[in-house]
Nucleic acid binder design. Structure first.
Lengths: 159, 159
DNA sequence: CGCTTTTTGCTGCAGTGCAACATGAAACTT
DNA sequence: AAGTTTCATGTTGCACTGCAGCAAAAAGCG
C-alpha cells in the first residue's frame, strides 16, 4: 500500500491494527524481547484509537477486569517506546502507536491535526539537515531533535 | 554585545538580568499590560537561573515569606508567555525566560544542553521552510511547529 | 468616591510520572 | 527436576503538573 500519512476516516481499521500487531511481534522476536499480554493490550489500545492517548485514557480503555495501575501502563509504554512501537507526543503528554516501519535512528516529524486529533509521521530528512546546520553554526552539537507540527490534516480540510 | 546564543559561564549575570527586566517593562508598557510584582518575580527567577525551571522550582526560588500557590505561578507564566517573555520547553515540562527580542510570529528553535541544562534559541527560518514543504506534500496545513533539540552546547564541549 | 476590571489568594481536584518494595513468571543452570 | 537468576507485574505511596471555581484585594476609570 502507499502508506497514507493520515488514515482515511473509513479505512479498514481491523486490518491496519492486526498488521501493526504482527509487525510488533516480529520486531520483538528479532530483538529477543517479549511482547507480553500487558504490553500487547497497551499497544492495541493505542492502535485502535489512532490518536494520542494519555496514560489514564489507556487505563480506561483496557479490560475493566484487571484495571492496571498507572505504573504498569507506564512500564509497558516504556518498553514499547524502546522498541520503536510507540512514540510520545511531548506537546500533548500523550502516546501514539507507530504505524511506520522507519528505522531506529532517522528523524520523524509528527503532524498533529488540531481538528480530529490524528497524528501522522513523515520523514524529516530535509528539516533535519537544516536543523543540524543551524545548531552547529552556534557551536551546538545536536542529538535527535523533537519536531511536532500542529495543523489541519487533509481529511479535515476537505470537509 | 553580540547576543551569544548560550551565555558564557562567566558572563555578567546582573547586567543581562536587569537588561531583560528592562525589556520586559518596555514590552508591557507598549502593550498596556501590567508587569506586577508577582509576574516580575517569576520572570526574575527564570532569568537568574538561565535554565528551564518547573513550576514548583520557581515557587521554591521565590521569597519564602509569601510562598505563592501553584496556580499563582501558572497564571504569571501564562501572562509572560502571552507577552513573549517566557517560553515553555515541552520536552521538559519547564519554562525559560526569553532573552531574545524576536518578533512574535517567527519560529524559534530551542537548543537544550544535556550537560549544563542551558537553553539557547536560534531562528528557525530554513528548517521552518523544510517543515512546511514536508507537511504540505502530504496535504497537511501546518501551524507554528515546535522544535526542541537536545545536545551539547559549545561551553560544555570545550571542557 | 463608587464601579468595573484585573490580579491574586484559597481550596480542591484530576492527571502525570515514578520510586521502592513485594510477588510472580519465565529462562537458564547443573 | 530443583534451584537460581532474570524479568515482568502488583502494591503502595508520593511528588509534580495544571487548572477550575470562587472569594478577596488591588488597580484603573468616570
Amino acid at each position: 500500500m502507499s502508506p497514507a500519512i493520515f488514515p482515511a476516516p473509513d479505512h479498514d481499521h481491523e486490518r491496519c491494527t492486526s498488521a501493526a500487531i504482527a509487525h510488533a511481534e516480529a520486531q520483538c522476536a528479532t530483538r529477543a524481547q517479549r511482547l507480553t499480554p500487558m504490553r500487547r493490550q497497551v499497544l492495541e489500545a493505542l492502535l485502535t484509537s489512532h490518536q494520542p492517548l494519555g496514560a489514564y485514557e489507556i487505563i480506561d480503555r483496557l479490560q475493566q477486569k484487571n484495571r492496571p495501575a498507572p505504573i504498569t501502563v507506564y512500564r509497558a509504554l516504556e518498553f514499547l517506546r524502546e522498541n520503536g512501537l510507540v512514540h510520545r507526543i511531548e506537546s500533548r503528554n500523550a502516546f501514539v502507536a507507530c504505524v511506520h516501519n522507519h528505522g531506529g535512528g532517522d528523524l520523524v516529524i509528527f503532524l498533529i491535526c488540531e481538528r480530529c486529533g490524528a497524528v501522522g509521521e513523515v520523514p524529516g530528512g530535509a528539516a533535519a539537515e537544516a536543523l543540524k546546520a543551524s545548531s552547529r553554526a552556534v557551536g551546538f552539537s545536536p542529538n535527535s531533535p523533537l519536531i511536532e507540527v500542529p495543523g489541519i490534516c487533509a481529511h479535515c480540510r476537505a470537509r
